[in-house]
Simulated assay, not measured.
Amino acid sequence: MKTYKIADRCFALEAINNDVYELYEKFAYQGEPEFVITTNDEDILFEREKSRREREFEGLKPYEFKDGYLETLAAYRKLAVKMTEYDTFLFHGSVIAVDGKAYLFTAKSGTGKSTHTRLWRELLGERAVMVNDDKPLLRVGEDGVTVYGTPYNGKHDLGCNMSAPLKAICIIERGEQNSIDKISASDAYDMLLQQVYRPSDGLALSRTLDLIDKACTKTGLYRLKANMDISAAELSFSTMSK
C-alpha cells in the first residue's frame, strides 16, 4: 500500500500489480490518507470483459490486455467514483494551461483535441503547459472550477502533477473554415454528458450530473470549428483568453 495526492485529496492505494504503483509514482505523497482504494482480481476480470465487449462493439480484433494495465483502469474507476464525494469528477479531454489559466478541449474521438492543444504549444511556446491530455479531474467550488493533472495522460503521456483554474471548456468540431462561438449550457450539455465519466453507482452518478450543471455556470463554454492549421489555435486562444 502506498499513499498519493491527486486533486487535493490524499489517499492510499492497495494494488496487486506493480504497474499501478509505477503509474502513480509522480503523485506520491507523504501524509495521512483520507480514504483507501483497493483493487483485486475481480476488478481486473471486470475490466477485461468490458474491454472485450467494447472492442467487439467497435468491430476491432480481440486483444489480450495485461493484468497490470487493466488494474490501472480499475484503480482509476474506483478513484473517480470516490472523488464525486469531494465535488470532483472525471472528464475526457485535453487540458492546457496558459499564464496560469486552464482551457479544456473536448470532442468526439479522432476529431483533433490533442492536435489542437499541440498547436497551442507551437503558438505560445513556454507560456503553454499541458495539464492532462486524456482524463483530467475537475473540482467544482464556490469560486469556479479547478482542473487537475492525473496519471492518465493519454498515449503520448502529456501532462503533469499540477492544477489550474479552468477558464473555458471548448467543444471542437472539424471544419474547413475556422470559427468559434460562445454557447449556452443547454447547447453544450449533450457533449459534456458524453465526455464525463458516468459511474454505475446511482449516488455517484447523481453527484456527477449535479457537478456538470454547476460547472456550466462557472466557466466559459465554446464551440470551435477548426482545421488543423495554427490559425485555428490563434483564433481559439485570442477569443477564450479575453
Results as ranks from 00 to 15, higher is better:
Ile6Trp: 01
Arg9Thr: 06
Arg9Val: 05
Cys10Arg: 05
Cys10Thr: 15
Phe11Glu: 04
Phe11Asn: 02
Leu13Cys: 07
Glu14Ile: 15
Glu14Val: 12
Ala15Lys: 01
Asn17His: 08
Asp19Ile: 14
Val20Ile: 12
Val20Asp: 02
Tyr21Ile: 10
Glu22Cys: 15
Leu23Met: 06
Tyr24Ala: 06
Tyr24Asp: 03
Glu25Ile: 13
Lys26Gln: 06
Phe27Val: 10
Ala28Arg: 15
Tyr29Lys: 06
Glu32Ala: 08
Glu34Leu: 07
Glu34Cys: 06
Asp41Glu: 10
Asp41Leu: 13
Asp43Pro: 08
Ile44Glu: 01
Phe46Arg: 10
Glu49Asn: 11
Ser51Glu: 12
Arg52Trp: 07
Arg52His: 13
Glu54Leu: 09
Glu56Met: 14
Phe57Pro: 00
Glu58Gly: 00
Leu60Gln: 09
Leu60Asn: 05
Lys66Ser: 14
Asp67Trp: 14
Ala75Asp: 02
Arg77Ser: 04
Lys82Tyr: 04
Met83Gly: 00
Thr84Cys: 07
Glu85Ala: 07
Tyr86Pro: 05
Phe89Glu: 00
Phe91Pro: 00
Ser94Trp: 00
Tyr103Val: 15
Tyr103Asp: 04
Ser109Lys: 07
Ser109Tyr: 03
Thr111Phe: 07
Gly112Arg: 00
Thr115Trp: 03
Thr117Glu: 08
Glu122Ile: 08
Gly125Thr: 06
Glu126Val: 15
Glu126Ser: 09
Val129Met: 13
Met130His: 09
Met130Gln: 08
Val131Phe: 02
Val131Gly: 00
Asp133Thr: 10
Val140Asp: 01
Glu142Asp: 09
Val145Met: 10
Val145Asn: 07
Thr146Phe: 03
Thr150Cys: 02
Lys155Ser: 10
Leu158Thr: 05
Leu158Tyr: 09
Gly159Lys: 01
Asn161Glu: 09
Asn161Arg: 14
Met162Ala: 07
Ile172Pro: 02
Ile172His: 02
Gly175Phe: 05
Gln177Leu: 15
Asp181Thr: 11
Ser184Asn: 11
Asp190Tyr: 14
Val196Cys: 05
Tyr197Asn: 05
Arg198Lys: 11
Arg198Trp: 11
Asp201Asn: 11
Leu203Thr: 08
Leu203Val: 12
Leu203Gln: 11
Leu209Lys: 02
Asp210Trp: 01
Lys214Val: 14
Ala215Arg: 07
Thr219Gly: 02
Thr219Val: 13
Thr219Arg: 03
Leu221Tyr: 07
Lys225Phe: 08
Ala226Tyr: 01
Asn227His: 04
Met228Cys: 00
Met240Asp: 11
Met240Gly: 10
Met240Tyr: 11
Met240Lys: 09
Ser241Gly: 14
